[in-house]
């Protein structure tokens, strides 16, 4: 079995199984978590409105911090969008999903994907360096923070290299790309990357709590 056969076969299969089981494990854990009942009376009605507002209001920076965090905020937005564009709109990736679910959709031109991937990878590297060099950021960063960025960065770098035929032979690069995707799948449910699933629900819950106490969100 070649490295590529291993990557396309057992590696992706087991990584996907761990990803799905791990994800449901985490979600189940959060759902079943016992929570303290609020002891005070609600300050406002329509709690869902508070949750819903917070889901959307956090997509733009808070006015108070806008000047200080705009670079980080913008970079974060761009690389997240770039990542999903590359993941979901690249012809070859759509083929992967089609093989799995039988569904396909129109792709973006390869040139657009190439630019999106390069910009995304560049921003991730920049943010990683910033995290490692800024004293405050460094003080609040742990292993999970650094590892999560690296684990997201690897599929982008190996994907770019295999597309552009850089470095190792194509089939080796493709195998490394698939293995890096497998690593991402295994790492995601058990790291901070799980925010992919929990971010919007937790914003909603936070919004409901704030709204109940009469805090504007």
């Amino acid at each position: 079995m070649t490295l590529l056969d291993f990557a396309r076969g057992p590696a992706l299969e087991w990584a996907a199984v761990i990803f799905v089981v791990g994800l449901f494990w985490r979600i189940g854990g959060l759902i079943f978590l016992a929570r303290a009942r609020p002891l005070s009376r609600n300050r406002r009605d329509d709690l869902w409105r508070g949750g819903w507002r917070m889901v959307w209001s956090r997509f733009v920076p808070n006015r108070v911090f806008r000047d200080r965090i705009s670079l980080q905020f913008l970079a974060g937005w761009v690389w997240h969008v770039g990542f999903f564009v590359v993941l979901l709109m690249f012809e070859v990736h759509i083929l992967f999903f089609e093989g799995l679910f039988g569904l396909s959709w129109p792709a973006l031109p390869n040139t657009v994907i190439l630019v999106a991937a390069a910009v995304t990878a560049g921003l991730l590297v920049m943010l990683l360096i910033r995290r490692a060099t800024q004293p405050v950021l460094r003080a609040i960063s742990g292993f999970d923070d650094y590892a999560s960025v690296v684990v997201v960065l690897l599929p982008l770098l190996t994907g770019l290299a295999s597309y552009a035929h850089l470095g190792l032979a194509y089939e080796t690069m493709l195998a490394l790309h698939l293995l890096s995707v497998a690593l991402l799948l295994v790492w995601l449910p058990f790291s901070k990357l799980v925010h992919v699933i929990t971010m919007l629900p937790s914003r909603y819950v936070m919004g409901v709590k704030f709204w109940r106490r009469g805090v504007e969100v």
Binding site: R8, G9, E13, V92, F96, L100, F101
Partner: peptide, 12 residues
């Protein structure tokens, strides 16, 4: 080539 060989929707 970009599709997984062993993984399928049944496994998922």
């Amino acid at each position: 080539l970009s599709q997984a060989t062993d993984l399928d929707s049944r496994t998922l």
